[in-house]
């Protein structure tokens, strides 16, 4: 795993577990209740020169089955084209699976499954924060 410990990151998330852990770190945490906002905020920041640290698509859990998503970014000066390309591709995949995701929306999931999804999302980034 890459060592980003010395860097101050921007954490964009809709995952309460990530929020409760990251709030105690030196990183900036932006919490939204809506997944749409997480992704569009990440895209907007990339346009302002931020670079993606983590890939915005989830791991092998069906692309958008997990209603929780955390994206880590680092502030930079210049637009990073590769970050923008990855972000735009991910948004395209998000649109494709949006309907499935709504069927699986967090309000419909029971508490223990919600916690499992949060844990999977948190585990992907925990070593970086």
């Amino acid at each position: 795993m890459a060592q980003n410990k010395e860097k101050v990151l921007t954490i964009i998330t809709n995952n309460p577990l990530v929020k409760s852990e990251s709030i105690l770190t030196e990183h900036t945490t932006l919490f939204f209740s809506d997944l749409d906002k997480v992704l569009t905020k990440a895209r907007d920041l990339i346009h302002q020169g931020y670079t993606l640290i983590t890939h915005p698509l989830a791991g092998s859990v069906k692309p958008w089955a997990n209603p929780y998503r955390t994206v880590l970014l680092e502030e930079n000066e210049q637009l990073n084209m590769r970050s923008l390309e990855i972000m735009e591709n991910s948004l395209q995949k998000y649109d494709q699976f949006k309907n499935d995701l709504e069927e699986n929306s967090s309000e419909k999931l029971n508490e223990s499954i919600r916690e499992d999804y949060q844990l999977i999302d948190y585990d992907l980034i925990k070593e970086l924060i």
């Binding site: 890459a2 983590t54 890939h55 590769r82």
Partner: peptide
């Protein structure tokens, strides 16, 4: 197949 883009690049 790691999570961070830096790991993927490396």
């Amino acid at each position: 197949e790691n999570v961070t883009l830096a790991d993927k690049e490396r």
